[in-house]
Computed example of a mutant assay.
Amino acid sequence: MAGIPLRKARTIIRKTLEAGHEMGLKPLSVIVLDEGGNVLAFEREDGSSPGRFQIAHGKAYGAVMMGVAGTAQLARAEAQPAFIAAVNAAFGGALVPVPGGILVRDGKGRVLGSVGVTGDTSDNDAAAGRAGIEAAGLVAEI
Results as ranks from 00 to 15, higher is better:
Val117Cys: 07
Asp120Ile: 04
Gly113Phe: 02
Gly47Gln: 08
Gly100Asn: 08
Gly51Asp: 12
Val32Gly: 00
Ile55Tyr: 08
Gly67Leu: 07
Ala77Lys: 15
Pro50Cys: 09
Pro50Lys: 05
Gly93Ser: 13
Gly93Lys: 06
Leu40Lys: 01
Gly51Pro: 05
Gly113Leu: 02
Gln73Phe: 08
Asp106Ile: 04
Pro50Arg: 05
Asp123His: 07
Pro97Arg: 09
Ala77Pro: 02
Gly109Ile: 10
Gly92Pro: 07
Asn88Trp: 09
Gly119Val: 07
Pro99Leu: 09
Val39Lys: 02
Ala56Leu: 09
Val104His: 06
Glu22Gly: 02
Val30Ala: 03
Pro27Ser: 05
Gly24Ile: 03
Val104Ser: 03
Gly36Val: 07
Gly109Leu: 12
Asn38Pro: 00
Gly116Met: 00
Gly116Ala: 04
Phe83Ile: 15
Gly62Leu: 09
Pro27Val: 04
Ile84Met: 15
Asn88Thr: 14
Tyr61Asn: 05
Val32Lys: 01
Glu45Ile: 10
Val115Ile: 08
Ala90Asn: 12
Gln80Tyr: 14
Arg110Lys: 14
Gly58Tyr: 00
Ala90Lys: 12
Leu28Lys: 02
Lys108Met: 13
Gly93Arg: 03
Ala19Ile: 03
Arg76Met: 15
Gly119Leu: 03
Ala89Ile: 09
Asn124Leu: 11
Asp34Gln: 01
Leu33Phe: 04
Ile31Met: 00
Glu45Gly: 10
Glu22Val: 01
Val117Phe: 03
Leu28Cys: 04
Arg76Lys: 14
Gln73Lys: 12
Val32Asp: 00
Pro97Gln: 08
Gly92Leu: 11
Met23Ala: 06
Lys26His: 06
Ala85Val: 11
Thr121Glu: 08
Met66Ile: 11
Gly67Gln: 08
Leu25Asn: 06
Ala69His: 15
Gln73Trp: 07
Gly24Pro: 06
Ser122Ile: 04
Asp120Lys: 04
Gly24Asn: 02
Glu43Leu: 12
Met65Pro: 05
Leu112Gln: 02
Gly20Phe: 00
Ser114Ala: 15
Asn88Met: 10
Ser29Asn: 08
Pro50Gln: 09
Val32Met: 01
Ile55Glu: 08
Val32Phe: 01
Ala63Tyr: 02
Phe91Met: 15
Tyr61Asp: 05
Met23Phe: 08
Val111Glu: 02
Pro97Lys: 05
Gly93Thr: 10
Asn88Cys: 09
Glu43Tyr: 07
Val68Thr: 12
Ile55Lys: 03
Ala89Phe: 09
Asn124Pro: 08
Leu103Asp: 03
Val104Pro: 02
Leu95Trp: 06
Leu103Tyr: 02
Val87Met: 12
Ala75Glu: 15
Val39Met: 00
